[in-house]
Design a protein around this nucleic acid. Sequence first.
DNA 1: ACCTGAACACCGTTCAAGT
DNA 2: ACCTGAACACCGTTCAAGT
Lengths: 201, 201
Amino acid sequence: MARRSEHSQEEIKKMILEAAEDIVQEYGFSALKVRKIAADIGYTVGSIYMVFTGMDDLIMHIKARTWRKLRICLEQERTEQITVQGVEDMALVYFDFTVCNKGLWSMLFEHQLPIGKVAPEFYMAEYQQLVVSVALLLKELDIQCSDAQLHQAAQILLSSMQGVCMQLAIQEGTRENIELAKAQIVFLVNCLMRGWINGVN
Amino acid sequence: MARRSEHSQEEIKKMILEAAEDIVQEYGFSALKVRKIAADIGYTVGSIYMVFTGMDDLIMHIKARTWRKLRICLEQERTEQITVQGVEDMALVYFDFTVCNKGLWSMLFEHQLPIGKVAPEFYMAEYQQLVVSVALLLKELDIQCSDAQLHQAAQILLSSMQGVCMQLAIQEGTRENIELAKAQIVFLVNCLMRGWINGVN
DNA sequence: ACCTGAACACCGTTCAAGT
DNA sequence: ACCTGAACACCGTTCAAGT
């Protein structure tokens, strides 16, 4: 056996990523195992180590893809706006993404590299692209501040939304809890934006 | 062998908790293993299952203790204040706690029970006590709003701070990163409080 | 060159067997 | 009653051996 060549390395890589993402979405991060992935794509465990250096490598790729999906989601819903309402809309798209992709989104924080290991460049770059994307949205508000300040505001906005969404992800996803968290996101963004604009001028 | 009775069940429980917390603090959550805990306290693995139903049970107890430590930390630093400054001080104590207890604090979010399993009552209660404690702090600001609104504001404040602290916990804890995150906490709390007070009146 | 699958070291959990 | 430690099922990772 061996030497099948039914799929290119690139195809196998994609199959692994998608199979792994399906598992995480359906059963949660704690259910993600190499043997399960291999079985799902019809290969053996060894083949996964042909295209990824190990589980951490695979996981970091999935995490990078999740940040990318989220960013694209946010950018698609964007219109030319000038008001705080546009930021609130963005926040609600972010919120919906975390609800619809609870497993993948939770994994962003459930998985942490062992102490000492730093996140790979491609992962950091993907997250930075999200920050930049949000900073560009804030720029349209025409608030009098530097690009560095815009960047920091985008970071804080993202981090704080993340905290509220996390609290929901931990709880049971009942309709009541979701509505409550959604109200918190709206409250958070409104206070934050009002306080920010108020403080600058 | 067996039947030592050198320590009471309660003593063993405490030894396990403290040994486990030391491991998490020094080597991170991913290094927490039953065999390591047992070796550190001079017992065998089986003894851990005498006082905890399993790893998840032990971990939930540690997480509850971490929330409690954080709450006590916040309450100790509290003075009779009326200004937003008092809230900022509280946020900075929270921040310092997460920096000094990076391993334990990160574990609060790295560990999640398998899908379907709900957190035990004692854990939920401990977190709720923290929320109530912060709500009582906000109450001293004498803002015109209901207790329910105070409670929600406390939840949002805690969640959003958590998001910013998490972002730091993920990164390398260089002095520069710590100072940057601290500035973000100050910025977040100020904007949030200003926006909140401004919105109510 | 590609892929297998057995082997390895390690993990959480259980439980019959000792004192 | 308390505690042991061997056994079990499962995990991520490696790599000699097949085609």
